[in-house]
Amino acid sequence: MPEEYVPGDTFCDDAPLLLGRERGSTAAVLALSRTISEHAGGLSGHEFTEISARTMELLNLALHAPSAEEQSLSAALALAARAYIAERSSDPRLTPDAVADHLGCSRRKLEYSLRSVGASAPARLIADTRAARAYRRLTDPQESASITEIAYTSGFDSLSTFHRTFDRRFGKSPTEVRRRRPRAS
């Protein structure tokens, strides 16, 4: 690994700290390391850097369990992020960076905080929140807006992204969902 990706506190008295197999991060670090070694010749410099960075993040997590205070702060940040995303997801300009800026933290800290409470990555959380909003409108018997209008007012900036996200999230197309909604009385 490039030296700049190795956290300074990975070593104790010039010896590497040991990974306990009881930590889930250990398996992820091993899998990423295996991927790097199996595909080293086919990875671009950018891919290698990204995989290395993720490996070191996981390694750092595996070696250093967060304190109760850190866990509490991460949970509070994740809760605030979820609330902000729920409130602003219909704005197509809402991005993970915008959420992090609003909360006064880095994107990495936001991602870590959401991951620490078992939530999706910020981009996926935004997309899923938008898809859920669209789903509610598509199943509302009183809703008369077109699928396209619902997609854009739910915060999607393109129909292809809307359809892809909706299908991934619900396993059905927006048209199928709309067709099966209850009839208005």
Rank of each mutant, 00 (worst) to 15 (best):
E149G: 01
S90M: 08
S72R: 15
V177S: 05
S144R: 13
T161S: 06
A119G: 03
S90E: 15
L138Q: 01
F11M: 10
S89D: 10
S72E: 13
A127E: 07
H163N: 13
L43E: 05
T165Q: 06
E47T: 12
G45T: 13
A121S: 14
S106C: 03
S160E: 08
S37W: 04
S72D: 11
L17H: 01
F162C: 02
R183Y: 03
A76C: 07
D128R: 12
R93S: 15
A40E: 10
L79R: 15
E176R: 11
T165V: 15
T153H: 00
A86N: 12
R88T: 11
L159H: 00
A68V: 14
S173M: 06
S120T: 12
S144D: 09
A15H: 03
D14T: 10
F11D: 00
A119E: 15
R179W: 03
T26W: 11
R180F: 03
P16G: 00
R108E: 15
Y112S: 08
E87A: 15
F48L: 15
A121G: 12
L63V: 10
I36V: 15
P182W: 01
A28H: 08
P96M: 06
L32R: 11
L110I: 09
A27V: 13
G20S: 14
E47G: 10
S173V: 04
S44N: 09
R82H: 06
L159S: 01
N60M: 01
A151P: 02
P66Q: 03
H102V: 01
A119F: 13
T35I: 11
E143Q: 15
G41N: 12
G155A: 03
D167I: 06
I147F: 01
L110E: 09
M56C: 14
T175I: 05
R136I: 00
Y112D: 12
R181N: 05
L125A: 14
L32S: 04
L59W: 03
G24D: 10
S72K: 13
I85H: 01
Y152M: 01
E149K: 06
T10E: 01
T161G: 02
F170W: 05
A123Y: 04
A40H: 14
G42Q: 14
S37E: 14
R180T: 13
L114R: 05
R21N: 06
A65M: 03
L59I: 05
L77I: 14
E149I: 01
I147S: 02
G20E: 10
S158W: 01
I51R: 12
Y5H: 11
L19S: 04
L138G: 00
S146W: 02
A31M: 04
R180S: 14
L103T: 08
D140H: 05
G155M: 02
Q142S: 09
D101K: 13
R115K: 15
Q142G: 04
T26R: 12
E176N: 08
D167R: 13
A131R: 05
H163F: 06
E149C: 00
A98L: 12
Q71G: 09
S173E: 07
P182M: 08
D14S: 11
H46C: 05
L125G: 07
L103K: 07
E4Q: 06
S37Q: 11
V99Y: 10
A81H: 10
A119M: 11
S33V: 09
A145Y: 00
